[in-house]
Design a protein around this nucleic acid. Structure first.
Length: 686
DNA sequence: CGTCCTCGAGTTCC
DNA sequence: CTCGAGGACG
């Protein structure tokens, strides 16, 4: 006997006879399967992992010592075995059907009417259940024991994944209770719970291993592992939704109850509903519950409850006439990438943008999606003409998630960045070590000029309302505006002559321009568009120097004394004011009456001085307003939660930042608390 | 020199 | 919102 491994532990229970060992093994197996049952079927918390593992190890030792005790039904089989060469094919005894899809309440109504006509009845009972986003599986039990598990495949022939399926703890290896048919086939969905998915990825990330893309692919990929020991490590779960065999309950609802008794997890959201109305109400209900579920669903399924009625209705081609899936609008869609455009930003940055065959994703039609930069395009191997998966990141900004490589029909050219700016023809330069390529045309490039002006006019800079993209395009296009200063010499006649610009609108724009002549210094600095000088840095500069004149003659050394300014930014600011063109523009702005207001000197008490606040969620007052109020009390307001954050102000529907704050134990204030605080310091939110 | 935090910049649709 | 990169800090 070896010293390490099982032998070492066995020595603690010496002299066990094979009979005693057999009794003990039976007891442990029953205990382990009882734990599984409580956890997966009854959805109740069970023993801690450590205890579970201890039982499993003890059983393993017994089986090692007395090989005759081992069996395929033992929980020790759940850790997986030797890798397979490939998957055998299995012909399904009952074909695995696909479901027709409905995408609207009207289609559900039509489905129900067809059922009514087919059955010649007024009222129909359905069983409604969530449609899991996982892998459909067929399980065969002979004599109450799991003998085969197969994937759906094409519905007729699937793959034998028995060894992998044995590792899924939610699936009973042996049926509980009695009364099962000798030959039973159970259908259901193997899926990966969201928590398990997140935990698994966290671990992968820590180990520097490849992360799973999404829970659905994760479940499918896990089952297709040739090495079942890998499958065993994936947090898979299972819901049963159907069965075939002799003497099964006549009603789908009762069948599910029966399956639960036999030891299968059945989804807790399953309901019996009446008629189209009941189906639609269930759909609405589940759509609302969806976000709170511990697993992904992509819709709901309705099945005529009674088997006799099902048989009466029969099938159309390969789909039953007695069932339908009502899918949620997909959050991911596949569409064709028509081409890749290159946009030129304010700083000359060239950004590849995907032009897409319009596609409805997550509630909106998407035609464009950013591709960020050339590295991103290469990493995802995106080429014009490809079929791509589009989704809305954070449910807002469309992005190309990946290419559907299987559908690439021909050799497609790899995307290349142009060597010349597509707008002005200047050379394109990409600094080594930088991800972004830039047009070197500077303000000679119309794209950069337009974007600079738009930035200058934007709400957080000079806040000139009405000076939008369309107008700027025209102003630059027809040569009325070359530089920022030119905005201040526009007259009514020039503006009113432009497209979509009546006298009234023109007047409004002029008024807005006039009103922008006394900006806060920080806003003006921000508006100038100095590289790497954003809102915060601009404000720092304004505070430190107090006037444009002082700043414009500052040396690099002086600039380095400003908080949060290092060599790179100092050089950029210095360079900006050395540039002849920029000095001219500044002089002209002053001549046209644009004079910045000096920042207010900090005065009075600043009760929140030194505190760092983070805003998250939806507040009933504009964010910018809340920020101003806090800053007027001396707090600094930043964008992301970290250890140095003092307080998180959480509005409605706060998300990751709130969680982060709770994790770090940072003080969290809700809106009413915030309003109280303001009141205490003599401020009002509104 | 490496790591953590911030800030800047760019982006979509209605 | 996300990524990249500048700046602070140990």
């Amino acid at each position: 006997m070896t010293v390490d491994g099982p032998g070492k532990l066995l020595s603690r229970a010496p002299g066990l006879s094979e009979l005693e060992a057999s009794v003990r093994a039976q007891k442990i197996r029953a205990e382990i399967e009882a734990h599984n049952y409580r956890y997966y079927v009854q959805d109740q918390p069970s023993v801690p992992d450590a205890e579970y593992d201890r039982l499993l190890r003890e059983l393993e030792q017994l089986e090692n010592t007395f090989p005759r005790l081992a069996s395929l039904q033992s929980p020790t089989q759940r850790v997986g075995g030797t890798p397979l060469e490939g998957f055998a094919q299995v012909r399904h005894r009952y074909s695995m059907l696909s479901l027709a899809n409905a995408f609207s309440a009207e289609e559900i109504q039509l489905f129900h009417e067809r059922v009514q006509r087919g059955l010649e009845v007024d009222s129909v009972s359905y069983v409604a259940e969530p449609k899991l986003d996982g892998v459909a599986i067929s399980l065969r039990y002979q004599g109450g024991r799991l003998t085969q598990a197969a994937t759906r495949g094409d519905g007729e022939v699937g793959e034998d994944v028995t060894t992998n399926v044995r590792t899924v703890r939610a699936i009973p290896l042996e049926l509980r209770a009695g009364g099962w048919p000798d030959d039973l086939e159970v259908r259901g969905e193997i899926y990966m719970p969201l928590a398990g998915f997140a935990a698994f990825n966290r671990q992968q990330r820590e180990e520097g291993a490849r992360e799973l893309v999404n829970p659905r692919n994760a479940a499918a990929g896990s089952l297709r592992q040739l090495d079942s020991r890998l499958t065993a490590k994936r947090p898979l779960a299972f819901f049963a939704y159907g069965a075939a065999g002799d003497n099964l309950p006549e009603s789908q609802f009762d069948l599910l109850l029966q399956l639960k008794n036999w030891g299968f997890p059945v989804n807790a959201e399953v309901r019996r509903v009446e008629n189209a109305q009941g189906c639609i109400a269930y759909y609405t209900d589940m759509a609302a519950k969806r976000a709170g579920l511990s697993y992904d669903i992509d819709g709901v399924v309705f099945k005529v409850e009674h088997r006799q009625q099902q048989e009466t209705l029969g099938f159309v081609s390969r789909a039953p006439r007695w069932a339908i899936a009502h899918k949620f609008p997909a959050q991911e869609e596949i569409t064709r990438l028509l081409g890749i455009d290159v946009q030129v930003g304010r700083t000359g940055a060239l950004t590849p943008v995907a032009r897409l065959e319009p596609v409805f994703v997550g509630g909106v039609t998407v035609t464009n999606a950013t591709l960020h930069n050339i590295d991103e395009v290469r990493r995802k191997d995106i080429r014009a003409g490809d079929w791509v998966v589009v989704r809305r990141a954070g449910d807002v900004i469309p992005e190309v998630a990946r290419v559907v490589l299987e559908r690439r029909e021909a050799e497609l050219a790899e995307f290349e960045l142009p060597r010349l700016c597509p707008v002005c023809g200047s050379a394109v330069e990409r600094m080594e070590s930088e991800a972004i390529a830039r047009c070197t045309g500077g303000l000679y490039c119309p794209a950069q000029r337009k974007q600079s002006i738009l930035h200058f006019a934007s709400r957080r800079a000079m806040n000139i309302e009405g000076l939008g993209e369309k107008l700027v395009d025209q102003l630059v296009g027809c040569g009325l505006v070359h530089s920022l200063a030119d905005l201040y010499i526009l007259d009514l006649g020039q503006l009113a002559g432009l497209e979509r610009m009546g006298e009234k609108s023109a007047q409004n724009v002029l008024q807005e321009i006039e009103a922008s002549k006394a900006p806060a210094l920080g806003r003006l600095l921000f508006g100038l568009g100095i590289r790497d000088v954003g809102e915060v840095t601009a404000e720092s500069l304004a505070r430190y120097f107090g006037s444009l004149e002082r700043l414009s003659i500052a040396s690099v050394d002086e600039l380095l004394d400003v908080p949060d300014i290092g060599p790179v930014v100092a050089e950029r600011v210095y360079g900006f004011f050395q540039e002849m063109h920029n000095r001219t523009v500044l002089t002209e702005l002053a001549q046209h009456g644009v004079v910045a207001r000096a920042p207010e000197v900090a005065s009075g008490d600043r009760p929140l001085a030194g505190e760092v606040w983070v805003l998250t969620g939806t507040l009933s007052l504009p964010r910018a307003r809340a920020k101003n109020l806090l800053e007027s009390l001396g707090a600094r307001v930043t964008g992301s939660v970290s250890a140095s954050t003092s307080v998180v102000l959480a509005g409605e529907a706060a998300g990751s930042k709130l969680r982060q704050a709770e994790k770090l134990g940072i003080r969290v204030l809700d809106e009413s608390g915030f309003r109280e605080l303001l009141q205490v310091h003599g401020l009002a939110a509104d």
